[in-house]
Nucleic acid binder design. Structure first.
Lengths: 187, 187
DNA sequence: ACCACATGTGCGTTATAACGTACAAGAGGA
DNA sequence: TCCTCTTGTACGTTATAACGCACATGTGGT
């Protein structure tokens, strides 16, 4: 019942991709029986298997979890705030949409604060648009300086990072998950 | 176990709140033994228990997961600027990318200025994020008011429009072209 | 009709998540 | 010192996640 509060969108995502349970099992390494049970809510997966699924679909975990942070995409109102105490402050502007394969975050960094990211799955592209302050972005082993009003698009399948300037930084962060590779049959 | 790719920040979060394992167990309803094992990476929790933990700490699930799509990102780069003098002032922030099927514009509207768009092709989704001022967006025959910092996502295969408030408006405008063909199975 | 193949679900077994309890190490207090 | 309390970890049991396989249904082909 406690799992009833979590709405896993596995079925939606899989339907959007047009994959069968068998194909999905092949792609993710999770047995199709388990995938079926998870979709029907008969089983509460471990994060390990959830991660396998997300990786197989080349999706972020947040695309599978109907977390409280995901608001209705057609709603114009306020967006939720996800705060990491002491570090980042991340707001979800546009939640992940499996059809678009895109999501947008609003991120605030304290002054001189730094955040590093490991490489994402292949096919992931990020876009950054600075709203306030200065931001340095680590890409291809070099720090690229950005000011408010500037944007950068880059492939996120390499390690990358963000470092705020002396006055902190606020920026939009768009994630694009290229859909071809994940959705086309493997052959 | 592939959970090595997932970094659960439970220990960080708990340390930040200054709670002991016992207190945390009390608060979340998860046994302290399990909490300890999860922190040490000896156990891969189910999303049900992860949800209990998040609820007990009054945090979103994403705050506990290290590798979700919720990381920040960043990076900077220069973008080309193309201005249409006269009515709108449009800058290209991110040019159209056929792989992503997406492009982003930076639009500035004078006070009370209005711009209407006919319906686009089916499958086109637009996103608007207001940077400055007030903006009304026409969607489904109704004007949706937006303020700076707010966003709206809507299907653009219907007539829609933008109208600036009394102080003008500056906003980002993302166009997503759903790659329907790529989503369909090849058969 | 029949056949071949793919879909999703049910069953039995194994691996392991989760529990409750018990234990070792440290911190104060009397 | 001894005692008490709290810390986190180790053990044994139970619940269940995850697996592989087999089954019912469905769909297209010949």
């Amino acid at each position: 019942m406690e799992s009833g509060e979590i709405t896993l969108k596995l079925r939606d995502v899989r339907a959007a991709s047009g994959l069968s349970l068998s194909k999905a099992a092949d792609l993710t390494g999770v047995s199709k029986a388990m995938l079926g049970q998870i979709e029907r809510g008969e089983s509460s997966p471990t994060i390990a298997t959830l991660w396998k699924i997300a990786k197989g679909f080349q999706l972020p975990l947040s695309a599978l979890i109907g977390t409280s942070g995901l608001r209705d995409s057609s709603d114009a109102g306020v967006f939720r705030t996800v705060t990491f105490p002491g570090s980042l402050e991340v707001k979800i502007v546009f939640p992940f949409d499996p059809v678009l394969g895109a999501e947008t975050f609003h991120v605030a960094l304290m002054a001189s604060q730094c955040h590093e990211s490991p490489a994402h799955a292949a096919g992931v592209t990020e876009e950054v648009f600075v709203l306030e302050g200065n931001l340095d972005v680590l890409r291809d082993d070099e720090w690229v300086p950005l000011q408010a009003g500037q944007g950068l698009r880059f492939a996120a399948d390499l390690p990358h990072g963000y470092r705020a300037g002396e006055v902190g930084a606020v920026f939009l962060n768009m994630h694009h998950y290229a859909q071809q590779a994940a959705l086309l049959p493997v052959d």
